[in-house]
Amino acid sequence: MSLAELICPAGTPAALRTAVDAGADAVYCGFQDATNARNFPGLNFTPDELADAVVYAHAKGTKVLLALNTYPPAGKVDLWRQAADTGARLGVDAFIVADMGVADYIAQTHPQVRLHLSVQAAASSPEAIRYYCERFGVKRVVLPRILTIPEIKQVRKDIPCEIETFIFGNHGLMVEGRCSLTNYLTGQSTNMDGVCSPASDVEYKRDADGTMSSQLAGFTIDCFGPDEKAGYPTICKGRYTAPHRPDAYYAFEEPVSLNLSRLLPELIDAGVHAFKIEGRQRSKSYVRGVVTAFRHAVDDIRAGRPADMANLVALTEGQKQTQGAFETKKWR
């Protein structure tokens, strides 16, 4: 049986302590800059805060993984290299990377620190994953959310590293690490600036009848009726009209969250080494609730007991959940 480590989000130092106290095996976090894919206002860690966080986590036996999972613009690598140097100095347990140049720098400069391949690298085939393992010494791959469990089981047999899969949270997969929708409207890059739908470009407008529209850079991307559940203001989750679809429809994806709580035993059986919970942008309340629920579930499964995973739907986007491609390739 795999170890089934629980990898938990930490957007702030307080959230990190909450995750650690709730039973995280590892927490992942980032600096307050473009080196990570949750470069949101008011979120993330200063170097001093990360230093304290590493001490706190390690004292309780929890690992700290530093997300450096964005792509430096050509020729502008210093920020990523400095972040790697700082993380290594502070004693993080692994770097989560997507860019080959960042991976190569860390492999050359900080070979004592583990490299995990971010979902943002979109490496889903054994050939691609083996390349990162052989060239940069990657020890773990975070798989894109496009594979079924039988496919994951087969990949596991064909690669020399551990597998981490998302089990809960935002399900905006597109082609991970390749999405440029935000760039088209805002000029900022999800993959290089680390921000999808920057808050400074988001506006919500409410009409007298209770209808709410969400806008990004002045473009309306969805409109919710007075009693309708809402979702994140991302282009991929918006509803649009088209000549062949005069009624607004979800052209890309739907506002729905991944929830694999029912599939945990099968994922463990498939050889998945670590389970990732999405949500560094979410609150301590979310971290406490989701980490606690999955901690109990994983412990129950490993002890041969049935797992109780009720009540997670309240924390899902649009209050809707899916098992996505893990269950079937026809989830839409």
Binding site: M212, A230, G231, P255, S283, Y286, A314, L315, E317
Partner: peptide
Amino acid sequence: EDGDAAFFSR
């Protein structure tokens, strides 16, 4: 409470 969840639920 989680702000995103409260926002999703309106």
